[in-house]
């Protein structure tokens, strides 16, 4: 722990800024994260549409994005109300 007064002031200011950030975001965090998740879910649906049997004219491009979306795939299909993976050949559970 540094005893340098300037360092202590800097830490205190950082603490206040963090408190402010938290006080600002906490009341509306759920609205924003929910909206963000809705957008991400829609995006994931578009990217995976070909795998789900929906023709996608942009599949040549969206195919490249597929690996980035697999991490959250399991949580996504559960959120969509599907108990098991809807994609043939890809079993996450």
């Amino acid at each position: 722990m540094s005893s340098n007064p300037a360092e202590q002031v800097r830490r205190f200011a950082a603490h206040i800024a963090r408190f402010y950030e938290s006080a600002y975001s906490a009341p509306y965090r759920r609205h924003q994260r929910r909206a963000q998740r809705r957008q991400e879910d829609l995006f994931r649906l578009l990217v995976m549409s070909e795998a789900l049997g929906v023709p996608n004219p942009a599949s040549f491009y969206t195919l490249e994005l597929l690996p980035f979306l697999l991490e959250d795939f399991h949580a996504w299909h559960l959120r969509m109300g599907l108990e098991h993976s809807p994609v043939d050949g890809f079993r996450c559970c």
Partner: peptide, 14 residues
């Protein structure tokens, strides 16, 4: 999203 542990002073203010 909805369920997030929050500092009690922040939560009181909210």
């Amino acid at each position: 999203i909805d369920f997030v542990p929050t500092n009690r002073f922040v939560l009181w203010g909210h």
